[in-house]
Amino acid sequence: MYTEKVMDHFTNPRNVGEIENADGAGQVGNPSCGDIMKITLKVEDNIIKDIKFKTFGCGAAVATSSMVTEMALGKTIDEALQITNKAVAEALEGLPPAKMHCSNLAADALKAAIEDYQKKQNA
């Protein structure tokens, strides 16, 4: 039911973990739905220099989290904000229809982390 790409990211997830003293952190999802994603960022000169994720969820949740970190790493903040949940799913060569809503939240987590970073910048 999952593509090879999803299984690759599930089996060998990229950028797992949590950055200490992160410049931005964002968490989306809810334990009662079975999916929580947390992303932490390090930003230098408006570029995402480091990004890590932690996820509670199914195979699709892990794979989308891993994929979004790969997509965002090295991008400028503006570029990273352009990443959508749909783009993440496409980069994984598709997700089962049932997973499109419940487990495809990784871009939202990234956005939440960037917003947290921006809030801290403006503070």
């Binding site: 949590e18 964002g26 968490q27 809810n30 929580i36």
Partner: peptide
């Protein structure tokens, strides 16, 4: 190790949690 949940880490109490403020 991959999960943001854990002992002593109530998901609702995480300082970085953005969603639980609203719902």
């Amino acid at each position: 190790a991959m999960s943001p949940l854990g002992e002593g880490c109530n998901p609702c109490a995480c300082s970085t949690c953005t969603i639980h403020d609203e719902d």
